[in-house]
Amino acid sequence: MSTGTTAAGGAVPALRMTDVSKQYGRGPGAVRALDSVSLRVARGSFVAVMGPSGSGKSTLLQCAAGLDEASSGTVHIGQVAVTGLDESQRAMLRRDRVGFVFQSYNLLAGLTAYQNIEVPVRLAGQRANPELVRELSERVGVSALLRRRPHEMSGGQQQRVALARALVTEPEIVFGDEPTGALDTGSARQVLALMRELTHRDQRTIVMVTHDPVAAAHADRVLFLADGRIVDEETTPTVDVVLRHMARLEASGC
C-alpha cells in the first residue's frame, strides 16, 4: 500500500486529528469528553494513549477510528477525511482502511482460527487470499492453530488470531482498545513484542489505549490525557518514566 505524500512532498500521517472536541448531551448536564485535541501519528509508529479513568482515552480512540463522530474539529485517516462522513461511509472506511484489536478478542466461537482471520474480507463480500492468511498466521505465531476454535486456544493465542484478523485487510492503521488487558503477564508481553515488531519491521501503524505502564513502555510514543486534553507526551517511554508521568497526573488531581 502506498504511503502517500502531501502536496509539499512530505509523508501523509497515518492519523491526523485537528482541534477535535466531543460533547455528550446539552445544557448544564453536558459532558465534554474531548477538548480541542490535536495530534499526528506517523506511519509505521506505535503510539500508546494513557490517562486516568474518565480522561477521554476511549472517546479519542472512537473518534479517531470513525466509531463515533466528533462534535467539532477534523479527523483524517491517511488522506481520507473522516469528519463529515455518514455512518454508512464510516463503516466502509473502517472495513477497508482500519483494523481493530479489542481486550475481549471478539473471535466467533463457531469458526476456526483461519475462518476468524478471514472474517473482515468475507464481510466485504470478497474471498480471502489463502497465502496472505497463512503469511499473517506465521507472522503472529498461530500457523499451527488454524484449524482450532477459540475454546481450544489460550487467551494469548486468541489475541494473536485477533491481531492477524486486524491485519488481513492490510489497513492503514490498527487501533487497540486495551488489547492485553485480559492476558496473563507472559502472554501480554509476547503480544506487545509482536505489535512492536509489526510497526518497526513491517511499517504497520498502531494506536493503543491502555492503562498498563508495561504495555505503554513498548510503544514508540506515549500520549497522556486528562480532562479530555493531551497534557503530556513521552517519546522515550520506559515503565518507570510512564509511572512518573501518571503519578504527576494523579497528584495534580486530573
Results as ranks from 00 to 15, higher is better:
V241Q: 14
T112V: 09
G228Y: 00
T6N: 14
N116F: 01
S137C: 05
A48R: 06
L249Q: 08
A70R: 03
E250R: 15
L85V: 12
P13G: 01
T180C: 08
S187N: 07
V37W: 02
R221E: 15
R90M: 05
A219I: 08
T6G: 13
G156Q: 02
S2I: 10
G29P: 03
G9W: 02
Q62E: 12
V82D: 02
P179G: 09
A11W: 02
A81Y: 00
G155Y: 06
H200R: 15
A33I: 03
Q203A: 15
E197W: 01
A144K: 10
S58N: 06
R134F: 09
L93P: 06
R196F: 01
S21V: 06
Y114V: 04
S252P: 00
K22S: 00
L146G: 12
A91S: 15
L107C: 01
L194Q: 04
Y114K: 13
I117A: 07
V222W: 07
V231D: 05
P213V: 10
D232A: 03
A64E: 05
A33H: 07
R95M: 14
T235S: 15
Q62F: 14
A219H: 11
L61P: 04
S187G: 01
L132R: 06
T5K: 12
G10D: 15
R32Q: 14
D240W: 06
S187F: 02
E69H: 11
R149N: 01
S137I: 06
R97L: 13
L61M: 13
A91Y: 07
A109H: 04
V231I: 15
M246L: 15
A11P: 01
K22D: 01
T180L: 13
H211I: 13
R32N: 14
V222H: 06
E118H: 03
D240E: 14
A128T: 10
A33S: 11
Q103T: 02
F102G: 00
L60P: 08
S38V: 14
D68C: 07
G25W: 10
V231W: 04
R40Y: 02
M17T: 08
A8Y: 10
S72A: 07
A109R: 11
T236Q: 15
V222D: 03
R248P: 00
F224H: 02
R221D: 15
D227L: 04
L192N: 12
E131D: 15
A30Y: 12
H245S: 00
L192Q: 13
P28E: 11
A8E: 13
R148Q: 15
G10T: 15
K22T: 01
G228I: 01
A7C: 03
A166I: 05
T6A: 14
F100Q: 05
V41Q: 08
Q89W: 01
T18A: 09
V75T: 12
D212L: 04
Q23W: 00
T3L: 15
A65Y: 04
G181A: 11
F46K: 00
G54I: 03
L132Q: 05
A8L: 06
M208Y: 09
V222T: 10
M92W: 08
E172G: 15
M195K: 03
V101A: 09
R127Y: 10
G66P: 02
A109T: 09
H200C: 12
T74N: 07
D68I: 04
G228A: 05
